[in-house]
Design a binder for these strands. Structure first.
Length: 416
DNA sequence: AAGGGGCACAACCGCCGCTGC
DNA sequence: TGCAGCGGCGGTTGTGCCCCT
């Protein structure tokens, strides 16, 4: 462990300390105190720089150092303190007798950070991870994708506003992003059922589907139409050669219209007539086929019976709610407070964390009250949400994080 | 049994702020 | 007031160990 023995340009030794050096240092400090660290090495007969001696003493040789595994209480305390103080390791260490800042820093970087990430908590902000904020926007994003698909298929529907959205969305739906769409489907599938298609025997209700897709604010008259588009998008992805593997395919098959149920009735195949039978527009890309929507006139959702089975509420970050009102350093029984994950916070988080990176003193988090995420109050429009996503220069990292997330059981745990 | 990857952690590096001259 | 020295701090690196394949 440590580094190979080496020396700097002044001939001073660097690297791991030998037992002899340790003994010399301890012996000297016991008899004389450390005094000036700069002068100490010479006086103690050490061929080290003062800084190296100081670090060795404070991080390793000090007699009051408690070594060994951190207890669960200590870990909780560190998390709580970090929520309040940020990366002020020395201050945090001051609250843990016998522990050094270096030790705590190492523990944080190798252990606690991952632990929080696994819990879906951003270790920097101690808020629900921003990718989860993105996830809270996914219904809107998917709805936007559906609209895009709609516009692609119905140029006559375009007006100046939608044309702009269309071009944005068309770009967003280019092949490289088909994989993203597939991933979105996958995630939504997980969010929607809390299980994988291969193991799920449940069928989503129409209400659940609509909420899942963020369509609750859309006129009920148009909802089946949009849903149809959604399924068409899935099919389109298939047709484009972006194989919709298990989960996504399972998702689509789960939405078999013959099994979609409203809260009180089972819809008939007339809602999605193009699902069961081979659909002519499956034979070509979504792009300009304006002969679709055979179902539009006949498909009517029972809008009077629109029970709001809000699937997204299942991933409401209120699940993270902490009951304490302040993250007191002395309260180590609870995990640190978490704050709003409302989509509005997203960019704010990005900015503040960016500022925090410049100014460590800003890393400390105020003890905000928790506001549960509310997809309905998300980014003002679906197009804006989509635009935000695809315009954001950090999009790639979001996707990476989402992929990480999707590959873990975190979401399932959240839903649970 | 061997190799590779991840983890743990000691140690180094560079910057910042305080203090004394 | 400005500057230099020093201590302290946070970030990063490098290496041995351990576990898994």
């Amino acid at each position: 462990m440590g580094r190979p023995p080496s020396s700097d340009e002044n001939g001073l030794k660097k690297g791991p300390w030998t037992p002899e050096e340790d003994e010399k240092l301890v012996d000297y400090i016991r008899r004389h105190g450390h005094g000036s660290w700069r002068a100490l090495p010479k006086l103690a007969g050490l061929n080290r720089c003062g800084k190296s001696c100081r670090l060795r003493w404070t991080n390793y040789l000090r007699p009051d150092i408690k070594r060994g595994k951190f207890s669960e209480e200590e870990e909780k305390l560190i998390i709580n303190l970090h929520a309040v103080l940020g990366n002020k390791w020395s201050t945090i260490a001051g609250h843990l007798p016998g522990r050094t800042d270096n030790e705590i820093k190492n523990l944080w970087n190798t252990h606690l950070k991952k632990k929080l990430l696994q819990m879906g908590i951003d270790p920097v902000t101690h808020r629900p991870r921003t990718d989860l904020n993105i996830l809270s926007n996914l219904p809107q994003l998917i709805a936007a994708a559906n609209f895009a698909s709609t516009f692609l298929s119905h140029p006559t529907m375009w007006d100046t506003t939608t044309t702009a959205a269309h071009s944005t969305l068309t770009a967003a739906l280019q092949p490289p992003d088909a994989a993203k769409i597939q991933l979105l489907h996958h995630i939504l599938q997980v969010l929607g059922t809390g299980t994988t298609p291969s193991t799920s025997t449940s069928t989503p209700t129409m209400e659940a589907m609509l909420n899942l897709l963020g369509l609750s604010s859309i006129s009920p008259d148009h909802q089946p139409y949009i849903l149809d588009e959604y399924l068409r998008l899935v099919e389109h992805s298939r047709m484009q050669g972006y194989s919709i593997n298990g989960p996504v395919g399972g998702f689509a098959s789960q939405i078999n219209p013959t099994h979609i149920q409203t809260s009180s009735t089972t819809t008939t195949t007339s809602t999605f007539p193009n699902i069961e039978a081979p659909r002519h527009h499956h034979q070509q890309p979504v792009s300009m086929d304006n002969s679709t929507y055979p179902s539009i006139s006949s498909s009517k959702l029972d809008s009077t019976n629109h029970k709001n089975t809000n699937i997204m509420s299942m991933v409401d970050i209120s699940g993270y709610k902490s009951t304490n009102s302040s993250a007191s350093p002395t309260n180590c029984d609870q995990l640190p407070l978490l704050v709003s994950a409302s989509p509005d916070d997203h960019h704010h988080d990005m900015i503040s964390s960016s500022v925090a990176n410049k100014n460590p003193s800003n890393k400390a988090n105020p003890n905000h009250d928790i506001i549960s995420s509310n997809p309905s109050s998300a980014t003002s429009t679906t197009f804006e949400a989509w635009g935000d996503l695809i315009d954001d220069e950090t999009t790639d990292s979001y996707w990476k994080d989402i992929m990480d997330l999707a590959s873990s059981q975190t979401l399932v745990n959240l839903v649970d």
